[in-house]
Design a protein around this nucleic acid. Sequence first.
DNA 1: CGCCATTTATTCAAAATTCAACTTAATTGG
DNA 2: CCAATTAAGTTGAATTTTGAATAAATGGCG
Lengths: 158, 158
Amino acid sequence: METENGARWLSDEEQRTWRTHLEVSRLLTYQLERDLQPFDLTYNDYEILVNLSEAEDHQMRMSDLARATLQSKSRLSHQITRMENAGLVRRENCESDRRGLFAVLTDFGWETMKRVAPHHVAAVREHFIDLLSADGLMALQEALEPVAKHLRATRGRG
Amino acid sequence: METENGARWLSDEEQRTWRTHLEVSRLLTYQLERDLQPFDLTYNDYEILVNLSEAEDHQMRMSDLARATLQSKSRLSHQITRMENAGLVRRENCESDRRGLFAVLTDFGWETMKRVAPHHVAAVREHFIDLLSADGLMALQEALEPVAKHLRATRGRG
DNA sequence: CGCCATTTATTCAAAATTCAACTTAATTGG
DNA sequence: CCAATTAAGTTGAATTTTGAATAAATGGCG
């Protein structure tokens, strides 16, 4: 089955899988977002807390954090400003490179992370992980890892 | 492995799969968005064109379209206004329910759809479908369908 | 050394999204 | 039949995101 300019359409099976993937992506995002609302965090907030929590000294350069969370520098800059206002992080100068800044987790940010993480993990289980069989989990990883690799490589160029 | 309040952490394997899924979701969205840029369409625009194209008479009630594309009514309303300004769709009154409106694909919208779809499908192949084996495809569908079902059911309450 | 391209990060304005309030029409329950 | 409730959709203001422009510091390299 070909389109006029030579592209192959998706088979029914392919289309079904594609749409399922898309639907899961979106609904899952919304659901996790909702599960964080009681803690006054967006998913974005949470993701930054995770990254900083896992980082050495609970701090990361803005650029690295932007890369890690797949956001533009501009967006991250605004995001950190908001989180700074909320008391979750603070900015700190980098001595070795005076252009640079660190985003640093505050005590309150760290406390928040410890308090919220268990609930978030429970939500990830409830809405995703625990719905997969052991085989399903492995199959998913094996199917998606090459896609991730491709996208990582493609990212930034055309 | 348990958190203090009884939630089970993710195993390494679970965590890896979860993060891979998340990464693929996001990078894929960005990539497809980029592939649509040359046609002056956002992914949102495209999705609406798809829905209307597949609908009877190339038209859909606003509510149904909002549901189908997983957006709020407000967001859809703004979105359709923009697309109306771009000449892709028009609004039309519904006679049987005078509160209601149809979003209708214009000729230009339909032409646009026919022109763009092959490129989009090619992108979906390049960045997703063609990176999966036949087994991978099936495994993905089987793993994700229950998740989709759960999230659909959970949506709106929960 | 001195110049220029690059890297880091912010800022401003424009576009998109959300959120709550509102309008109008249809339904429902006495 | 009417009042109250629900449903469809829009609106406008506030928030968030994007994208281009800017500023400051670094790194090469001739």
